[in-house]
Amino acid sequence: MSRSLASTVDVRVDLSELVFADASLMVDLAMVARRLRKAGRRLYLQDAQPQIRRLIEIVGLDRLAGVTIAPLPA
C-alpha cells in the first residue's frame, strides 16, 4: 500500500487471485483511493472475483470518487 501512495501515476490493483477479503482491506483501499484522489490520481480495481466485487459494492467502495472498477474479461 505504501508504494501505491508514492506513485506518480494512477494505481492499478489486480484482484483476480483474491478469493477472500474483509472490511479491513476495503478500508485500506478506500484510504489509498482518497489519498490518490487528493494527488490527482485514480485507483483502478481490476478483475475482482464475484464475491470480492459484491463486498466492494456492499461497502460502497465502487461509489467513491477516484475509484474505477474494471470487470473480469468475458
Results as ranks from 00 to 15, higher is better:
residue 65 A to E: 13
residue 52 I to E: 05
residue 33 A to C: 03
residue 59 V to H: 08
residue 39 A to V: 05
residue 72 L to A: 08
residue 74 A to Q: 11
residue 71 P to V: 09
residue 10 D to R: 00
residue 44 Y to V: 15
residue 48 A to P: 10
residue 48 A to V: 02
residue 43 L to C: 02
residue 64 L to G: 11
residue 37 R to E: 14
residue 70 A to P: 00
residue 24 S to E: 07
residue 49 Q to Y: 04
residue 50 P to T: 04
residue 39 A to Y: 02
residue 21 A to I: 10
residue 2 S to Q: 11
residue 40 G to S: 05
residue 41 R to S: 00
residue 22 D to A: 05
residue 19 V to K: 11
residue 34 R to Q: 10
residue 25 L to E: 11
residue 16 S to Y: 12
residue 32 V to I: 15
residue 36 L to Q: 06
residue 32 V to W: 09
residue 52 I to N: 05
residue 24 S to T: 08
residue 4 S to Y: 11
residue 72 L to P: 05
residue 42 R to V: 01
residue 18 L to W: 01
residue 38 K to H: 14
residue 24 S to W: 01
residue 63 R to T: 15
residue 22 D to N: 14
residue 69 I to V: 15
residue 43 L to S: 02
residue 48 A to L: 05
residue 6 A to M: 06
residue 63 R to H: 12
residue 3 R to A: 15
residue 36 L to F: 10
residue 18 L to I: 13
residue 51 Q to A: 12
residue 1 M to K: 10
residue 9 V to T: 15
residue 32 V to A: 04
residue 13 V to A: 06
residue 45 L to M: 08
residue 39 A to H: 10
residue 24 S to A: 13
residue 59 V to D: 00
residue 46 Q to A: 13
residue 49 Q to I: 04
residue 58 I to V: 15
residue 22 D to R: 02
residue 47 D to I: 01
residue 11 V to P: 00
residue 66 G to C: 07
residue 30 A to Y: 00
residue 26 M to V: 14
residue 44 Y to L: 14
residue 66 G to L: 07
residue 3 R to M: 14
residue 43 L to A: 02
residue 68 T to E: 12
residue 72 L to I: 15
residue 61 L to N: 03
residue 15 L to D: 03
residue 32 V to L: 11
residue 6 A to V: 03
residue 30 A to S: 09
residue 53 R to T: 04
residue 17 E to T: 06
residue 8 T to Y: 12
residue 21 A to Q: 01
residue 71 P to N: 12
residue 13 V to C: 08
residue 66 G to M: 08
residue 9 V to E: 15
residue 66 G to F: 08
residue 57 E to N: 08
residue 70 A to W: 09
residue 6 A to L: 10
residue 46 Q to Y: 11
residue 70 A to S: 09
residue 37 R to M: 06
residue 45 L to T: 01
residue 64 L to P: 10
residue 46 Q to H: 11
residue 28 D to L: 14
residue 52 I to C: 01
residue 44 Y to R: 15
residue 21 A to H: 01
residue 68 T to R: 09
residue 23 A to E: 10
residue 45 L to Y: 01
